[in-house]
C-alpha cells in the first residue's frame, strides 16, 4: 500500500476528513475512526504511540463538554446547578464528536508521512499547481523540525545563563518570551533569505517551467483505491443529505479551522518572494541549457 501514488493518498485523506466534518453523531464517527485505523494499519503505520499523546487534550475536551452542555439546547439533563444545565446528553454527544473528529483528522494526516516530501512536490506539480508553491510547502515541512530543535537548544542556553523558566512568575515569563521572540523571528527571516539565495544560486526559477528526475504514474491499484474512496464518500454524503445519519445535533464544524502559525508562513513565503522575476521560457524546454 505504501507504493500508492501520493495523489491517491491525498484523495484518501480528503475523503476521510470530509466525512469526519460532515458526520455529526458519535456512532458513525466512531465507525469512521475505526475504519481510519484499519487503513493506517494496511499502510503499516504505528499509530498507537501517537494516540497516547492525545491524553493531553483531555482537559480541553472536558471544557468542551461543559460548554456544549450549557449553551446547546435540548437533550436530557444529566446534571444541573441552580437551573443551569451542566451536563446534558447533547453536550456529551457533542464532546464525543469532537474527540472522534480530532482523532480522525490527525490519524488520516499520518498517511502523508508514508511518502517522501519530494513526491508531494511532484504530486502538486502534476495536479497543475505552480511549482513555486509546491516547493514552498515542502520547504516548510522540511524546516519545521529543525526550527523546533533550535528553539529547544536556545531555551537550554537561556536557562544555563541563569533564568529558571520553571520558577519565574507569570508576568516575567510573558516579558521574557516577548523579549526572546524578536531575535527568533529575525533568525527565521535570515534563514529564509539564505535559503532563497541558495535556491536561486542553483538556478531556481530560471525558466517558467522545470522538469523532474522522476515522474509520477498511477498504477491500476491507484485507480481502484481512488474510485472506492470517492464513491463511498459521495454515497455517504448523499445519505447524510437525506438526514438518515444526522439526528439533528448541533454541528460543530467551525471548531476545526486549523490555522498555521505566522512564523511558519513567513518562512515559507519568503524564499519565493525573494526570488526574482522569471526569465523568458525557451520555446522548447527540453532543448537543454539556453544561454542569453
Amino acid at each position: 500500500m505504501n507504493k500508492l501514488d501520493p495523489r491517491t493518498k491525498i484523495v484518501i485523506i480528503l475523503c476521510l476528513s470530509t466525512l469526519a466534518v460532515v458526520l455529526n453523531s458519535p456512532i458513525p464517527l466512531l465507525v469512521l475512526f475505526v475504519l481510519t485505523l484499519v487503513i493506517l494499519s494496511t499502510f503499516r503505520i504505528n499509530f498507537i504511540g501517537i494516540m497516547f499523546k492525545f491524553k493531553k487534550l483531555l482537559p480541553l475536551l472536558l471544557v468542551m463538554l461543559i460548554v456544549q452542555s450549557v449553551f446547546a439546547a435540548g437533550g436530557e439533563t444529566l446534571l444541573a446547578y441552580k437551573g443551569i444545565n451542566i451536563l446534558t446528553s447533547n453536550g456529551f454527544n457533542a464532546a464525543l464528536c469532537i474527540l472522534f473528529r480530532m482523532l480522525i483528522l490527525f490519524s488520516s494526516a499520518m498517511l502523508i508521512m508514508t511518502s517522501s516530501s519530494k513526491d508531494y512536490v511532484l504530486a502538486l506539480v502534476q495536479l497543475k499547481i505552480p511549482y513555486e508553491i509546491a516547493f514552498m510547502v515542502m520547504v516548510a515541512f522540511r524546516f519545521l523540525p529543525v526550527f523546533l530543535e533550535e528553539i529547544k537548544d536556545t531555551l537550554i542556553a537561556v536557562q544555563l545563563r541563569g533564568v529558571d523558566l520553571k520558577r519565574i512568575a507569570w508576568g516575567n515569563k510573558v516579558k521574557f518570551y516577548t523579549h526572546f521572540f524578536t531575535p527568533l523571528l529575525w533568525s527565521v527571516m535570515l534563514k529564509a533569505r539564505q535559503l532563497a539565495i541558495t535556491m536561486e544560486a542553483r538556478a531556481f526559477r530560471v525558466y517558467r517551467r522545470r522538469t523532474y528526475l522522476r515522474v509520477l504514474r498511477y498504477s491500476v491499484l491507484d485507480y481502484y483505491v481512488m474510485a472506492f474512496f470517492l464513491l463511498t464518500t459521495i454515497m455517504v454524503l448523499f445519505y447524510v443529505s437525506l438526514d438518515k445519519f444526522s439526528p439533528g445535533i448541533f454541528s460543530m464544524t467551525d471548531h476545526f479551522q486549523l490555522s498555521p502559525g505566522k512564523p511558519l508562513l513567513t518562512t515559507v513565503a519568503l524564499p519565493v518572494l525573494h526570488c526574482q522575476k522569471y526569465k523568458k521560457c525557451p520555446d522548447s524546454c527540453s532543448s537543454g541549457l539556453i544561454k542569453e
Binding site: 517522501s116 541558495t198 517551467r209 522538469t211
Partner: peptide, 24 residues
C-alpha cells in the same frame, strides 16, 4: 545548515539540473 533543503541527497543534486528543464 541552510544550503540543503530537500529530503534526500539524490533530490538535492537533481534540483539544479531540473531547473534547467533538462530531460529526465
Amino acid at each position: 545548515e541552510t544550503q540543503l533543503f530537500l529530503p534526500t541527497v539524490e533530490d538535492e543534486i537533481a534540483f539544479a539540473p531540473e531547473n534547467l528543464c533538462l530531460p529526465p
